[in-house]
Design a protein around this nucleic acid. Structure first.
Lengths: 135, 135
DNA sequence: TTATTAGTCCATAAACTTGGTAGGCTATCA
DNA sequence: TGATAGCCTACCAAGTTTATGGACTAATAA
């Protein structure tokens, strides 16, 4: 399951995608419109900024905005950043790989199955962007 | 990601699947062979028993064993039992459904995408059984 | 019936994660 | 320079995960 933090992140990013080109959006506006706890949202947006997904402007007329066009930001990127691995096991993760202890990856039915699951999931989330979240 | 508990459950169930028809297997044997903390494994097996996946026998010659043939136990059943929802969002879960607050499920891009992910995952885990985990 | 075996139950706890709050600091702009 | 709005640091309550220890109970064999 995606954490609440991830769900908040997606809501905020969807909102910012809709407002793309309308200039900076206040944290407080996003929080109010999307019903996200203000300070928690603050830390999420900051994290997204540090990951170069968002940019911000301080002072009057400031706020947050997407650094790139919505269609340039893959859903998989956001999941990995905020939620963590997409795979169900560390030993089949591409970005968070960890070797299995006491389990031969070459001869493990679970391993093989989880690779299938991973690829099925990736075929979707690697090919969707923030633009696809706007309806 | 699957919890460690889930990984232990799968390891134990795979072992019991291999030993199916060889009679009850000791907890301690499974723990030793699969390097699982004994007492933790104990509680996992008990949970699987309460869910009618396993059965057990006390006393000499006792132990745990599968209640049905390995090919009768779906992987999805185990994941849901030990790990929880398979879907990435409560609002797209079949077995753990919860309505989205402040989010119209009829018009939500994230929702639609996560249904796709769920179905892609289910198409695999609903069609694999413990038998498929033996290599 | 008694000793042994092996699962069952209950209580506890450390470590980690999640979700969230408080408040001061700093950059920007009018 | 004063208001605005994001930045930063610290903290924390609650829940979950991953265990561990010990007493209890059922089954079996001698």
């Amino acid at each position: 399951m995606l954490s609440k933090k991830s769900q908040y992140a997606f809501k905020a990013l969807t909102y910012l995608s809709e407002k793309y080109k309308e200039g900076p959006v206040l944290i407080s506006e996003i929080a109010a419109k999307k019903k996200i706890p203000l300070k928690f949202l603050e830390s999420i947006l900051l994290e997204l900024k540090r990951a170069d997904i968002l940019d911000s402007k301080k002072g009057k007329g400031g706020g947050y905005f997407l650094k790139q066009k919505p269609e340039k930001v893959k859903v998989s990127t956001i999941i990995r950043l905020i939620n963590g691995p997409i795979a169900m096991l560390p030993c089949v993760s591409l970005y968070f790989y960890e070797r299995c202890k006491n389990c031969n990856e070459k001869h493990c039915g679970l391993h093989d199955m989880m690779i299938e699951v991973r690829d099925a999931t990736l075929s979707i989330v690697e090919n969707r962007t923030l633009k696809d979240l706007i309806v």
